[in-house]
Amino acid sequence: MAANYWASTQRRHWLFSREKLADIREGLREKDKVAHSQFPLPDQRLLNIYFNQRRLIQIIELIKLGKRMSTRQQAIATAQVYLKRFYTKNEIRQTSPYLVLTTAFYLACKMEESPQHIRFVVGEARGLWPEFITPDVAKLGECEFALISELSSQLIVHHPYRTLSELQTELSLTSDEIALAWSVINDHYLTDLPLLHPPHVIAIMAIIVAVVFKPTHPSAYPGTGQSALAGSMRDGGGMQMLAALSDKTGSGPPPKIQKLVGWLAESEVDIKAVIECTQELVSLYEVWEQYSEKSCKELLGRMVKSKNLDK
């Protein structure tokens, strides 16, 4: 159902356990061992940073999609989820990631009711990656067929942003906290979390990070200040506090956190899952420190060019 997550295709078909996801990826690797040894690629999260964060934002800015941040972010988020799902069915080394990314974005814009003309999207993508995107719009049109087919036409995506705005009043979140939670949600698309947990768990994780850890750089976007956040999450003792939540023995934290703890205790949210999400995020911020745009670009470029994936 369109607005009911519990009956959605997202929950029924695109939610995996960690083990299942690992098996799927191992299966893809087994099918193409040669390419794997020939074309080593950086950590998937670093590739995600390379594509999603920096490049998508650039395209979006070029296209001036909508006036509000929420418009753009929702289309980006949907495109990111399409990519993740697509690459559970296809080995990245069999595709041109640049083309798949552009197509996912083109499709997500239509799905999120901000359609962009195919020529325009191809033109802008060519501006960014002239060596990887051909001017032939039919290429993108063809890739759209492949993408929809691999996604089994299941194109409606539920995002944590909605839960976040729904809980804003209930948990009396400040605009700083909302902004920070929002950027944490943006960041989670760089990890496997959208394939592992339902959107409301992610939203609650983001709220906890925003309220409990209170990093010094709020509304860091995109991705700046993440090391500060990682630092405060590692060192601030927040982890212990969060762990304490699951024991329901939160004694003496500030009223705001007490309120959050009380709310969590009454809700039936899976606290363990929330903690796991938080750890995933910390580990993303640690990996982020190794990010090198140059190395991502080189490795991908070598793969695409030598396999003629852009033809």
């Binding site: 295709t9 195919i118 719009v137 039919a138 063809e142 036409s153 194109l155």
Partner: peptide, 21 residues
């Protein structure tokens, strides 16, 4: 016949029909 990108209404109908039951 060329691939020219699917119409938004086709995309909508596909996505909604897939989701609804």
């Amino acid at each position: 016949i060329q691939y020219t990108g699917l119409s938004q209404s086709a995309i909508r109908e596909m996505a909604l029909c897939t989701e609804l039951s």
